[in-house]
Amino acid sequence: MAKTLYKVTFLNAGKVYELYARQVASGALWGFTEIRDLVFDVHDGVLIDPTEERLRDEFGDTRVLHLPMQGIVRIEEVERKGQSAIRDAATGERVVTAFPQPGKPR
């Protein structure tokens, strides 16, 4: 039997985050939703998704994510994991940090 998987979309610092988790529940803290067991892709090869790496750096050590109910856009129960994303809240475009180019000032 396949484990339940949720796609959680929420607002954070002017951006829309899309993460995947195994458990979602009403939190012990009033007004918060608990997100547990975050799921990230494990890449053994050379190709790495920079957005997935950024999310893993930010949330990789998180045991429980307590999200305020007002910040949650939607929670979907899905069959399989898609690509995690960070989007600009105003435009909906993916936010990806470009690799630094040699000779170009930052």
Rank of each mutant, 00 (worst) to 15 (best):
Y6L: 06
Y6C: 06
D88F: 01
N12P: 00
T9Q: 11
R36S: 10
L19S: 07
E93V: 08
P68C: 05
A25E: 15
R56A: 11
A13K: 10
D49N: 15
R94M: 10
T33M: 11
Q101F: 03
A25G: 11
E77D: 01
G27T: 07
F59G: 08
A2F: 08
F99D: 14
L38E: 01
L55C: 10
Q70S: 13
A89H: 00
D44Q: 13
L47A: 12
G27W: 04
R106Y: 08
R74I: 04
D44W: 12
D57Y: 05
D61W: 11
R74A: 14
I48G: 00
L67W: 09
E53D: 11
I35Q: 03
L29A: 13
K15F: 02
L38H: 05
K104A: 09
R106M: 05
I86T: 01
H66N: 14
G14L: 03
A98E: 12
G60R: 08
Q101N: 05
R87M: 06
T51L: 12
Q23S: 13
F40V: 06
V73N: 02
A25T: 11
Q101Y: 06
M69V: 15
T9W: 02
R74E: 14
S84G: 10
P50Q: 11
L47S: 13
R63S: 12
F59P: 02
T4C: 09
Q23E: 15
V16T: 14
E52W: 04
